[in-house]
């Protein structure tokens, strides 16, 4: 297993390099020189030139040891992403945003997973009945409603009309209060797609012989479903879960913006809106790195939950 992990870690090097190359081409070569934008609306040429120098836009793109690509590479491997367009350190912005994003997406993800998997097991168990059909219809309806509609309705009805939650993030109050409603909205809005996905997995599993055998041996329904069926359905669940984990750190763009939660989703939306390529670059790199790492973790988890899988 150690050899496998080392080999996979070595594979990561060209992947990460490729990501760096792509982000550099996208944001520096194609995106162009943003010194005019940083300098402000009526800046003179001197100020623009100075900013160009400060951010290294006056260096050659590739063909030099002191090129923009080498700077880009150095910043990424040292995790020192420099300063954003507003001159605040990007690492500081990211550090500040991780907590609120995880406070929102962590419970949302867990809640959604638990509800979706549990309901999927039950629905798969009662497959073909009116409950199953109703659930599928509700899921499809839920998937058809735009995410934004859930947010607008939820904020208006639960926060404003019923006053069960704050309308927007309250920094002076415990964080849990502010993220309660966004978590509920996130779970409800995402449940349709998740439930349908897990229902399909559970249906495949529940038709197997060992399930019938377990029932024949007199095991309780809950034991069969939650101990045996769930365990055997773990591979696709793990794939789905582990690969979704990096996205949690990125937060939720729309929920964070509507509820004023100062997370990384909000940071990313602002960066895109203001063409702050320094932040977009840093976030893209971190995200891709997390994807690579979590993909490796997924493979390791397969072996942990399924003894039939071994590393070669």
């Amino acid at each position: 297993m150690t050899a496998f992990i080392i080999r996979r870690l070595i594979y990561m090097i060209p992947i990460v390099f490729g990501v760096l190359l792509v982000t550099f081409v996208l944001f520096t070569v194609v995106g162009g020189d943003i010194s005019q934008q940083i300098a402000g609306k009526n800046a003179d040429q001197q100020t623009i030139d100075e900013i160009r120098h400060e951010y290294g836009f006056d260096k050659p793109l590739f063909l030099s040891w002191d090129s923009q690509f080498i700077d880009h590479f150095k910043r990424a491997v040292t995790f020192d992403f420099g300063r954003a367009m507003d001159r605040e350190r990007i690492s500081e912005k990211i550090r500040r945003g991780v907590g609120p994003s995880l406070m929102l997406t962590g419970p949302m993800f867990c809640g959604e997973l638990i509800v979706a998997v549990s309901l999927a097991l039950i629905i798969a168990f009662v497959r073909g009945t009116v409950w199953d059909v109703s659930a599928v219809v509700i899921c499809v309806a839920g998937m058809s409603i735009p995410y934004l509609s859930f947010i607008i309705f939820g904020q208006y009805f639960f926060a404003y009309k019923l006053d069960w939650f704050p309308i927007i993030y309250l920094p002076e109050e415990p964080m849990i209060k502010s993220v309660g409603l966004p978590i509920v909205i996130g779970i409800i809005a995402g449940l349709g797609a998740e439930l349908r996905f897990y229902r399909t997995i559970m249906l495949d599993e529940i038709r197997n012989d060992y399930v019938r055998t377990a029932f024949a041996k007199g095991l309780s329904t809950s034991r069969v479903l939650f101990k045996h069926v769930l365990k055997n359905a773990m591979i696709p669940i793990i794939t789905n879960v582990v690969l979704a984990l990096p996205t949690l750190i990125l937060g939720s763009f729309l929920l964070e913006r509507f509820f004023g939660i100062p997370g990384l989703g909000y940071l990313m939306i602002e960066a895109i809106g203001s063409r702050d390529f320094f932040i977009i670059n840093a976030m893209t790199f971190i995200f891709s790195l997390l994807i690579v790492v979590f993909t490796l973790l997924t493979d390791i988890c397969y072996a942990l939950v399924d003894p039939r899988i071994s590393f070669k």
Binding site: L102, P174, I176
Partner: peptide, 17 residues
């Protein structure tokens, strides 16, 4: 982990008005 997150999340920030 959930308890730790909850504890962080429930911590009252700053002094109230």
């Amino acid at each position: 982990l959930a308890a730790a997150m909850l504890a962080v999340g429930c911590a009252k920030k700053g002094d109230s008005a």
